[in-house]
Write a protein that binds this DNA or RNA. Sequence first.
DNA 1: TCATTAATTGCCC
DNA 2: GGGCAATTAATGA
Length: 229
Amino acid sequence: MLDVALISNLPNFDDFSRPELEAFISQSRARHVKKNEYFFSEGDPAECFYLLLDGYIRVVRISPAGEQVIVRYIASNELFGIAHAIGRDTYPANAIATVDCVALAWPMSLWNKTVQKHPSFAQVANSTVGSRLMDVQERVIELATEQVEHRVAMALMNLVKQTGKEVEEGILIDIPLTRQDVSDMTGTTLHTVSRLLSGWEQSGLVKSSRKRVIVTNKEKLLALTTNGR
DNA sequence: TCATTAATTGCCC
DNA sequence: GGGCAATTAATGA
């Protein structure tokens, strides 16, 4: 089976034997979701957990004021929709395909069994939950205390880490990314983001065009994330 | 080509 | 910095 070769190297499956892995995968269903369509919405019953094979997903919540907030992006080979790992039976946010995506979906009823039987899987699940929690906490502090310029620089660096792709001019953030998206991540407005990016483009830190951002000077951008004032 | 969606900029708070 | 409006640019049907 093609899928086995694709994922057998992931740390999630270190302690699966080949037949175990094949059996596990045979219980999943491949789900293709087109750009801008939903894997699931906030509050939906958490019927499945997923492993993203290809694409990028943005995790979005709607604030009480009705504004959309991009909580994070999910890249390929990450688990998502793992509501049971945090003791929920509904999904805590919307998961929207940023580009065309392919994921494997397992019925949530398999979650407990899998975690109990396979420490490697449990460990990846735990560290996924843990590092996402850390991210959220860091961002709450950031939003409350840091300058906008600092936050935007931080958001771009995180995207570089997750989705960065080497190109001639620098590192491309490999998802369609609008100014609006960046402002939804950093709690600013698209205007401010546009102005910041224009300024950075002038000084040679980034290069941007419609839905595309290339970081041309990672060091300087990184410097903005550490002092920022 | 036209309609839609994104991005920029200037002005004011 | 944010909000708004006008303008321009890119894109996809």
